[in-house]
Simulated scan of single mutants.
Amino acid sequence: MIEHKEHFHGSDLEKIEAIYGIKKEDITSFSANVNPLGISYRLREGLMEHIDAITTYPDREYTSLRKCIAEYTGTDYRNILVGNGSTELISLVIQLKHPKKALIVGPTYSEYEHELSLEGGRSHYFRLKESDDFQLNIDELKQALDRDIDLLVLCNPNNPTSSQIDRQSMRIILDTCKEKGIFVMVDETYVEFSEKADQITSIPLTNYYNNIIILRGISKFFAAPGLRLGYAICGNHQLLQEIDSKKNPWTINSLAAVAGEIMFQDKEYIEDTKNLISSERERICRILDTCPSIKYYPPHGNFILVRILRDDVTSMDLFEAAIRKGLMIRDCSTFPFLDNKYIRFCFMNPSDNDALLDVLLEQLNK
Rank of each mutant, 00 (worst) to 15 (best):
E6Q: 13
K15T: 13
I16E: 12
E17S: 14
Y20G: 06
I22H: 06
I27C: 07
T28K: 12
T28L: 09
N33I: 06
N35F: 05
P36I: 03
Y41N: 08
R44H: 10
R44D: 13
E49V: 05
H50C: 11
I54G: 05
T56Q: 14
T63W: 04
L65N: 06
Y72W: 13
Y77W: 15
N79V: 05
L81H: 00
V82Q: 06
G83H: 10
G85M: 02
T87L: 04
T87Q: 10
E88K: 01
H98E: 11
L103A: 00
T108L: 07
Y109E: 09
E111A: 12
E119S: 11
R122F: 08
R127Y: 07
N137M: 00
D139F: 08
L141W: 10
A144P: 10
D148H: 11
D150F: 02
L151W: 07
C155P: 07
S162M: 06
D166K: 09
Q168F: 12
S169I: 01
M170P: 02
R171A: 12
C177R: 00
E192L: 15
S194I: 01
E195P: 03
S202R: 00
N207C: 03
Y208V: 14
N211G: 12
A223Q: 03
A224N: 09
L227H: 07
G230A: 10
N236K: 08
H237I: 14
L240A: 04
E242W: 10
D244H: 14
K246D: 07
I252K: 09
I252F: 00
V258S: 04
E261Q: 14
M263N: 05
M263Y: 07
F264N: 08
T273C: 10
L276V: 04
R281Y: 05
L288W: 12
C291R: 02
P292E: 12
S293K: 10
S293R: 08
P298F: 06
P298S: 11
F303V: 04
I304A: 03
I304S: 04
A321F: 01
I329Y: 04
R330Q: 13
F335R: 03
L338S: 05
L338H: 05
R344Y: 02
R344H: 04
S351Y: 11
L357C: 10
V359S: 04
L361V: 12
